[in-house]
Nucleic acid binder design. Structure first.
Lengths: 333, 333
DNA sequence: GTGAAAGCGCTAACAA
DNA sequence: TTGTTAGCGCTTTCAC
């Protein structure tokens, strides 16, 4: 493996000139540039990035903390991050934390030990969240909730949920159930607030007997359908607001297997707009998050912070799109 | 940010002693060790890994080339890789190549420029595969096929496919269709060879009119079901061997929607044993690959190569498990 | 058991 | 435009 020194010898110039020829070719005369490039080619020289990083005090690497790498929403956000990072020549280290704060800490250590320049945290920040020593590492929160104490890129979960429920009310639903995520999850909290806000605006009283807790999984959605089927028909909701698509799809499957026709007997809405949601039967009415844009924006924000620029905004709230498909209809008389 | 020099001052020892206290504590007296550790704690010293990597000429990082990061089989392999890497204190850089050789080359460059110590390639190697300069970088192929020209960890696709088809034949099927992956894909080629071998053994002639090409996706499986439904019933296969689970599940959905009952009218087998395959209706008869073990073994193999040990074996063929569930039964008389 | 010193490959300030 | 040189933070030999 040849070094810059070998190149300098082969090109009969100093190592400084070689270094310049590579990083600032405009500062080098045409003729020497040619000599240097020839030598580089001949020796198959590749700069040692380890050395370069060390010297420049930058790892050229950021880490993305992902709760679940197999989740399509996250992979789309990551795609956006990678696109921006790649333009800058920065590597993206994916930290699949599997919701373990221990693993999260391991990845944060990478920033502390300079192996990474910054971190993007792909999950809602919670109050008792000691994981990120935010005054110490460059960090951005992506796809979180309100009141994140460090720079963040997210959607307005409250308004989005409100918009969904407003729509259900507008087409005639008065009794609207909820399949929530884990009740302590900030996303669940925000989306429930939006639900309540829509109810209040329409003068409908909140009834916690038609709210059930899931865990954002397909199976918890299916279970929830049983919960609703046990409610006597006259008290049963005519629509169910699910806090994500997976649970909505699980619920649809559960209801169908119990002979409840969607949307004839019951309207269902989701949240996230998974790839699959437009193909499922019936196609899901849901909220589409600008996942790729969330990724891009958060990467841009992180790089600003790394560069020491004070970003013009420290919180970006991106617009969502409410998509009406076939899983909702007017309630039966 | 404090350096080793600050620690040495605070502990009133030389920097060499601090370095030793950290890397080889046994070479340092108890009393100085105590002083050094106190200083480290007081100054909140974290070794600069960039410098350490540079000095030690190792990045403490390997890259895993993944064709599709959202694929559950791959994420399971990765889990195995990460487990082994973590024990060694090595980071895993996930390279989602999205089947693009351009992106693959970018990641290989990381090894050439010393930013990563080695590479695990998670896809079958093809003959015209110029991507990996194998004599230059430490590399291992995982979950590929026969005749990979560098160290590899895989299953025996031919035998696995043969076992599946043998089983179908043993329970009475004589006319067995195939939903293949892309015909040029080495996995497809190997699995088709296994299929043919089983046929030959049973004295059944190969009939390419009941073999159709998919692309390993759910939708291509669904399309394939239409292909089979267009075949007159008397010529239609009584069983279909699908080259992966996704296509099998798509096919089941397609057949069901056309009134073909599985397994009563038609038996279906998959390949991979996705998480979902045991829950789908009917639960899928399929081949389970030891995904996590493939990951572990390939990481171990790579580390051996990086360490310059010549591995005892350069090809590991791991056993599969054939799982009989509910999507197969004896053919109707 | 400990310290002094060289050096890993590269960049940048400064001098020529 | 080019070369000389110091030094980034760390490890390791070699003396003591």
């Amino acid at each position: 493996m040849s070094t810059i020194r070998d190149v300098s010898k082969a090109a009969e110039v100093s190592i400084a000139t070689v270094s310049r020829a590579i990083s600032h070719p405009e500062k080098v005369s045409k003729s020497t540039l040619k000599k240097v490039n020839a030598a580089i080619k001949k020796l198959q020289y590749r700069p040692n990035m380890l050395s370069q990083s060390f010297r420049n005090k930058t790892a050229n690497c950021i880490v993305v903390l992902v709760p679940d790498i197999a989740n399509l929403f996250f992979t789309t956000v990551i795609k956006g991050i990678e696109e921006v990072a790649q333009k800058r020549g920065v590597n993206v280290l994916l930290g699949d934390t599997r919701d373990s704060s221990g693993r999260e800490l391991d990845y944060i250590k990478l920033v502390e030990t300079k192996q990474a320049d910054g971190i993007i945290q792909l999950r809602p920040y919670t109050k008792d969240d000691s994981a990120l020593p935010i005054d110490f590492v460059s960090a951005v929160n992506a796809s979180g909730c309100e009141n994140t104490p460090y720079p963040s890129v997210r959607i307005d979960n409250v308004s989005a949920a409100e918009e969904v429920v407003n729509y259900l009310i507008s087409i005639g639903h008065k009794r609207i159930g909820v399949i929530s995520g884990l009740v302590k999850n900030p996303h669940s909290i925000d989306r429930l607030r939006g639900y309540k806000r829509a109810l209040k605006r329409a003068g409908i009283e909140f009834d916690d007997r038609i709210v059930t807790e899931g865990d954002f999984s397909f199976w918890s959605g299916m279970n929830a359908s049983e919960f609703f089927c046990r409610i006597p028909v006259e008290q049963r909701p005519t629509a169910v607001f699910c806090m994500n698509d997976e649970m909505a799809i699980g619920a649809i499957k559960g209801f169908k297997s119990k002979g409840v026709s969607i949307p004839r007997d019951l309207s269902i809405t989701g949240f996230d707009d998974l790839e699959f949601s437009k193909y499922c039967d019936p196609a899901l009415t849901t909220v589409s998050q600008p996942a790729e844009m969330i990724g891009k924006k958060s990467a841009e924000l992180l790089f600003q912070i790394i560069d020491g620029e004070s970003p013009s905004q420290s919180e970006y709230v991106l617009p969502i799109e409410f998509i009406i498909r076939k899983s909702t209809s007017v309630p039966q008389p």
